[in-house]
Design a protein around this nucleic acid. Structure first.
Lengths: 221, 221
DNA sequence: CATTTTTATGCAGAGACTGCAAAAATGCAT
DNA sequence: ATGCATTTTTGCAGTCTCTGCATAAAAATG
């Protein structure tokens, strides 16, 4: 008798690939949930890519995924959420990963490492390529996706607050987490615009280095 | 025969206070537009503050502002946009202000100065106090407002690209602008949480100083 | 196979937002 | 003042997102 919704799946985001690609884990139920979620995501991303985003309705997505329109909202809280490249699992792990970094690491280095892992996990997802295309063709959508970044930011705050022995409301902790997430966003954006000439990690490393140097100009490219 | 909307006001955001508080500038039309906009904003912010945001409909707002519901969307593109503390005028000026800063200033200093001006202008607006209350009681709304920050960010990118003689797509320029905006957001948030114990500029200065120091811990409070 | 728990679905409805065209208000020149 | 042009307001119809609720379908369990 949990106080949560009676209708929604108990775990809207089954872990598709936490440690490795454990595709066939869990019972039938879990497998079907993963399948449904992925079907919705793939249908949505493909439709977005082909027809633009405004032109695609939730009903369209569900039709292509062979799922009831009502069910869509059991998996995603909004139409655009299908574009979020990570799930609750990843986010929940983030705080722990921050704690797990070597103690001698500077905060920015730890942040870079953790976010680097997160984004690489996302890039290994089955829909990343199309997602990237969609976001490149429809930059307005980045706004919507950024909301999801906020959840990651909160996780970072949690992790660094503990790691540094400070409160979650600590200004430095907040600034650190927010800046790190912003750096991730800028890196992803630049990487996308550059037609994948350099690796994602390259941009990430370069930008974190800029942060370490106090954002002074002309130090790097 | 401009190709723009036939229905919307030509200038949805008349400049309420560009240089000084020029309340009575322009013809009757301009004055009425300002009045309508402000009426909507005040009604909305007050209702949000008293009843929460989800409980207030656009129709409610319009009823209190004595304006047709349809008209609301001539002034704001979404229900939450009434909470944005600056108008198009401010944003358009931003790029120019970046160019206007003394040439010897470091980028971060210029950014701090420009954003400091922007936020102070916003704080002088008639609805700032209530807006702050609303955002404190309903942190979810910060998400929606952040979208507006993105417009400021774009303006910063423009300004710094020119100031530094780089392209708008330059990675450093992007990172600089994005980080500056993020710092503004964190500063505002911390300032709000602290029940106005310190001045806004204090938080802003402190956080920009942290950036200059490469976000190393323990350097400041 | 009966029971319990979880998920999928259908239905109705609230509410945000848009396009369109008529009406009202304002600006302007005579 | 009066007539004409421009801009803003409004009403209306309609689309679409998203939610609550009740029920059917599915699957885990014993």
């Amino acid at each position: 008798m949990a106080r949560s919704a009676r209708t929604a799946p108990s775990t809207a985001t089954p872990s598709p690939n936490h440690g490795a690609g454990e595709t066939g884990t869990g019972g039938l139920r879990e497998r079907k949930k993963r399948a449904t979620r992925q079907a919705l995501q793939q249908a949505a991303v493909r439709l977005f890519r082909d027809h633009g985003t405004g032109a695609v309705t939730v009903d369209d997505i569900c039709a292509h995924a062979d799922v009831s329109p009502r069910t869509f909202f059991n998996y995603f809280t909004s139409k655009e959420e299908v574009l979020v490249p990570w799930d609750r699992e990843t986010i929940d792990n983030t705080a722990a990963r921050v704690l797990g970094r070597p103690p001698e690491e500077e905060p920015l280095e730890a942040a870079e490492a953790v976010l680097g892992e997160a984004i690489e996990t996302a890039m290994n997802g089955p829909t990343w390529r199309d997602q990237a295309v969609v976001l490149r063709h429809h930059p307005e959508l980045i706004e919507k996706v950024v909301t999801a970044f906020r959840a990651l930011e909160a996780a970072l705050v949690e992790g660094f607050a503990q790691r540094l022995g400070r409160a979650s409301e600590d200004v430095y902790v907040r600034l650190l987490a927010a800046t790190a997430i912003t750096t991730l966003r800028v890196s992803v954006q630049s990487w996308q615009d550059s037609e994948a000439g350099e690796s994602m990690r390259h941009y990430l490393a370069e930008n974190f280095e800029r942060l370490r140097r106090g954002l002074r100009p002309d130090e790097l490219g």
